[in-house]
Each structure stands twice: as structure tokens, then as C-alpha cells.
């Protein structure tokens, strides 16, 4: 780990001023940043610790039925907030399917959005990586590609964004609230993360020095509460990143779908909203044949980035299963193994 300057602002304005320095980086829970610094993969000249700024850790209900989640709300506190979990059950389930209880107690909402990829070559300082060193090349190409992207990748980078939280957030039109040297602005989460193109080092819409202050969900998101699920396939049932995940939600009138929402995780450099699949389901009957068509549409543009073609068929099946589970109804209580296809009862509807 490199030596750095440590700063502890007491206000957002102070934080933004301190972060204007080149090489400055915000520190929240530290669960991703410290890991990367220990590997010398990130070498900030200054850490701007935002965790002592008051007022950023609130979960505030909004007049339209939505909610504002402060950037410092810990992942565990959000998942266990009874009102939040009742109105946004797929988001609570996704949070509880991520990392471990210890990490969720430390990880913040803002940090979760900005966590870096888990590409093994990105994590290995001896490998060439365009994200770490623009123009260096990408050792993942032609290497071990099992976990890499199948959507939206480029020849410059095939890494995925590994967040679980972001997947239902993007399905429900979350908005990121940002404060920076040029003042306050907001950005839909769908446009917040970037696809790699030829600048994989630019991962988000944030300009240097900008910080996330909150994530907002519109009231419309709560209308899916009765039929909203997150499903995550991973190498082990807990404490593992997704191979593929999906957030699926339905608004039903009898057996007719009024509106559907779908996003996929760990398939691209961003949480992947599947608008074409949603459009196909709007007005359709809620049945397995239609869920299958939606899954086909969601993966229509997918192509393997190496030996990971299996993820395309896996993703189709995860989408289909997630809709089957959403259609069956959100369970009254999050299942013992959150988002797991192996949870007791999870296979009942298939």
C-alpha cells in the first residue's frame, strides 16, 4: 500500500473541496478500496474519508412513495429496514445475497455502486490490464474467461460489474444524486456505469472530484412489491459473487402483465437493464412461454468473450426462473438462502 494523506471532512462541501486535488479518492466502508490498495492496484495520494459527514446515513421516505437512500447507509441497515424491505423486497434480497454479514455491516450504498470489477487480471498487478493502465492491453482476452462479460464488452475490456444491489436498482429506475466541484446534479443509474468501449478505465459518469450523496427510488418501484424477486447463481450458495443474476418484477392485472421489469447482473460492465424483454411482456399473459420469449429477447445481443458462452444460456434460464418466482409472488419473508435457486421451495413453481 502506498503512503497517502488522510483527510476527514465534516461536510459535503469540505469533502468536495478536498477531493478536487489530483489523486484524491473518497473512502467509505473501505471494503473494496482497502483491498485494492493492499494489492497496490489503486494508489491514491489522498483519502477523503466521508464516513464522518453527518446526514448521509438516512433512509428517507419521499412524498411520491419512493425513498432516498443516503450514500453512507450500510448495506445491512438498508436490507433490514422493515419498511424498505416491504416496499422494495427484491432490493433487500439482492443486498442479503451479497458478500457476508460482516461486509454488509461495513459496505455503504455509495461504495457498492462504485465497487470495481472482480476480473482476476485486474486484481493481478503482474497482468496487463487496460483498466489499470490504459493502453497496456488485456490479459483476460484469451485467458480465463469463465466469469467475464457476454454483453456490451469490447476488445479492450471484457470485465463485468459485480454488484448485486445495482441490479434491482437499475430495474426500478434508481437515480444517483451527485455533488461535485460544479454543484449538484443527478444521473439515472442506467446511465451511471459505462460500457468499456476504448476507454475501459472510465467506469462511471462521475467527473473527478464528484461524490455520490444518495440513491433515489421513485414511488413506481414500490408498485411491484408483490411480485419482485432477485435470483443469483454463484459457485457456492453464499459469500460468492454472481456468475449471472437477475432482478425480475411484474405488475399484474389478473394473469395479464401490466408492466414488467428486468435487469441482469454480472453479464456486462454495468447492471444490464433489458428494455426489449420488458416491452415484450407488457400486455402479455404471465406464463412460462412468454417468460421464455423475454429471456430470448434479453440475451439477443449476447456473444461470448471467450470460453464463457455457457453464461448466455445460463442467463436465459436465470431470467425465466426469476420471472416464474416473481409471478408466484414475493414471499412474506426473505427465504433463508437469499436469491438462491437452491432455497427450500424455490423449485416448487418450476
Amino acid at each position: 500500500m502506498n503512503r497517502f494523506d488522510y483527510a476527514r471532512p465534516a461536510t459535503i462541501a469540505e469533502a468536495v473541496a478536498l477531493a478536487a486535488e489530483p489523486g484524491a479518492t473518497y473512502l467509505a466502508g473501505g471494503t473494496n478500496l482497502l483491498d485494492l490498495m493492499k494489492g497496490d492496484l489503486v494508489r491514491p495520494a489522498r483519502l477523503v474519508d466521508v464516513t464522518h459527514i453527518p446526514g448521509l446515513d438516512a433512509i428517507e421516505p419521499l412524498a411520491d412513495g419512493g425513498v432516498r437512500i443516503g450514500a453512507l447507509v450500510r448495506n445491512a441497515d438498508l436490507a433490514h429496514d422493515a419498511d424498505f424491505a416491504r416496499r422494495f423486497p427484491a432490493i433487500a434480497e439482492a443486498l442479503l445475497a451479497g458478500a457476508s454479514a460482516q461486509l454488509r455491516n461495513a459496505a455503504t450504498a455509495g461504495g457498492n455502486l462504485l465497487q470495481r470489477t472482480r476480473c482476476a487480471y485486474f486484481y493481478d498487478a503482474a497482468s496487463a490490464c487496460n483498466k489499470r493502465t490504459p493502453g497496456a492491453g488485456c490479459d483476460a482476452r484469451g485467458g480465463e474467461t469463465r466469469m467475464q462479460a457476454v454483453l456490451g464488452w469490447s476488445e479492450h475490456c471484457i470485465a463485468t460489474h459485480p454488484s448485486d444491489f445495482c441490479v434491482p436498482l437499475v430495474a426500478f429506475d434508481a437515480i444517483v444524486e451527485i455533488e461535485g466541484p460544479k454543484g449538484r446534479r443527478e444521473c439515472p443509474l442506467e446511465h451511471f456505469h459505462r460500457l468499456p468501449g476504448d476507454t475501459p478505465e472510465r467506469e462511471s459518469d462521475l467527473a473527478p472530484g464528484e461524490m455520490i450523496t444518495a440513491v433515489r427510488l421513485p414511488g413506481a418501484a414500490a408498485q411491484f412489491a408483490g411480485h419482485a424477486r432477485y435470483l443469483k447463481v454463484r459457485d457456492r450458495t453464499s459469500y460468492a459473487f454472481a456468475i449471472v443474476s437477475a432482478a425480475a418484477a411484474l405488475r399484474l392485472d389478473g394473469e395479464t402483465i401490466v408492466e414488467a421489469r428486468l435487469a441482469l447482473g454480472s453479464v456486462a460492465a454495468k447492471p444490464w437493464r433489458a428494455h426489449a424483454a420488458e416491452a415484450l411482456l407488457a400486455g402479455a399473459q404471465a406464463n412460462e412461454a412468454n417468460f421464455r420469449r423475454a429471456a430470448e429477447a434479453a440475451l439477443a445481443e449476447a456473444r461470448p468473450a471467450g470460453a464463457n458462452g455457457y453464461k448466455i444460456e445460463l442467463a436465459r434460464r436465470v431470467v425465466r426462473r426469476a420471472f416464474i418466482l416473481a409471478h408466484a409472488g414475493t414471499p412474506a419473508r426473505i427465504q433463508a438462502l437469499p436469491a438462491s435457486p437452491f432455497a427450500t421451495g424455490a423449485l416448487r413453481h418450476v
Binding site: Y6, L27, T31, D49, T51, Q102, L103, A106
Partner: peptide, 18 residues
């Protein structure tokens, strides 16, 4: 336990927890 909550102390910067 940090303020009563379990965390991984290896990923917690000491100075941040003044």
C-alpha cells in the same frame, strides 16, 4: 465488533474509526 456490529477488521482503516 465495532460499535456492537460485526465487521472484518482487516478491511477497516483504523484512523477512519476514531
Amino acid at each position: 465488533l465495532l460499535d456492537g456490529r460485526r465487521i472484518n477488521s482487516c478491511l477497516a482503516l483504523a484512523i477512519s474509526h476514531d
